[in-house]
């Protein structure tokens, strides 16, 4: 009897523990979200420092933008080529293979350019940003700056954040442009479509603001969010090698998810009338 009572108590306690744990992790998640927002405001305030020190920004544009360029160009070329091939096989049955360029260009400008660029960016530059800032935290460099009366958010975080926001639309534009060239190579050089038709079809169907403009807005938003996540995860990481690894993973995972969710929301806002 007593044994049963004891067992009952154990089960009850285990359940209570579980509920407690759930509450704790919810609170932790909420406070992280709060910290992330306060942090963002600090970073935005810190951006003013860029005006006096453009050198910091240039350095970060190099490591965030230029060093991501190769992967973007290669990916863009092949995505464009694959798109052209797929579009050709889908459209040739309807005798509409002249529309290959429309399909390639529209999907690149509206979706693939901004989204794939952002995903690659999160994996390449975002994780590097997190690791770099996290390592500076772990080696007390951020603390050291604070004690030298230098604001690390202004000096370390803000340039990286701004570089991410600036780089993303540029990278997306390069991705799309290279993708269109890849599509051209396959459609015109390989499949023998007419070069004039390729360009004129695209020109007649692609709207400057509707498609190119909205695509650029998308990648600007992605750049903002991915850079924010990346620098926050670095700045907020637990300063151990394990914590650093987790933070880097979180940047890629949260960053990618945020991109895909935001892409849906933005698409719904932009293209539904």
């Amino acid at each position: 009897m007593i044994y049963l009572l004891d067992r009952g108590k154990d089960v009850l306690n285990a359940q209570l523990d579980r509920i407690q744990g759930l509450g704790r992790s919810t609170l932790a998640a909420l406070s992280r979200l709060g910290r992330a927002n306060v942090f963002l405001i600090d970073v935005l305030v810190g951006l003013t420092g860029m005006l006096i020190r453009p050198g910091l920004l240039i350095k970060q544009l190099f490591s965030v933008g230029v060093q991501t360029l190769v992967i973007i160009v290669v990916a863009g070329l092949f995505v464009g080529m694959v798109m052209a091939l797929q579009a050709y096989y889908a459209l040739v049955d309807f005798g509409a293979e002249d529309s290959v360029s429309v399909m390639v260009v529209l999907s690149l400008l509206r979706e693939l350019g901004p989204v794939i660029t952002a995903l690659l960016f999160a994996g390449r530059a975002g994780s590097a940003l997190t690791a770099e800032i996290g390592l500076m935290k772990a080696t007390e460099q951020l603390s050291g700056m604070e004690m030298m009366a230098v604001n690390p958010i202004e000096r370390v975080v803000a340039p990286r954040f701004l570089a991410g926001v600036i780089s993303m639309p540029l990278l997306a534009a390069i991705f799309s442009a290279v993708g269109v060239l890849g599509g051209y190579l396959v459609a015109v050089e390989l499949l023998g479509l007419d070069a004039g038709a390729f360009w004129s079809q695209a020109q007649s169907k692609v709207e400057l603001f509707e498609d190119l403009g909205n695509g650029m807005i998308k990648s600007l938003v992605f750049g903002f969010v991915v850079s924010w996540i990346a620098v926050f995860e670095g700045y907020d990481c637990i300063p151990t090698s394990e914590g650093l690894g987790q933070a880097t993973t979180r940047t890629v995972v949260y960053g990618s998810l945020a991109i895909l969710v935001l892409d849906f929301v933005l698409t719904a806002l932009m293209f539904s009338k």
């Binding site: 007390e140 603390s143 050291g144 700056m145 604070e146 009366a149």
Partner: peptide
């Protein structure tokens, strides 16, 4: 606070040099 910190020097355990 930053003005005060300018008058403080601190040596961190790891040195905390900017790498």
């Amino acid at each position: 606070l930053y003005a005060l910190r300018k008058r403080m020097g601190m040596l961190f355990q790891s040195g905390a040099l900017l790498t």
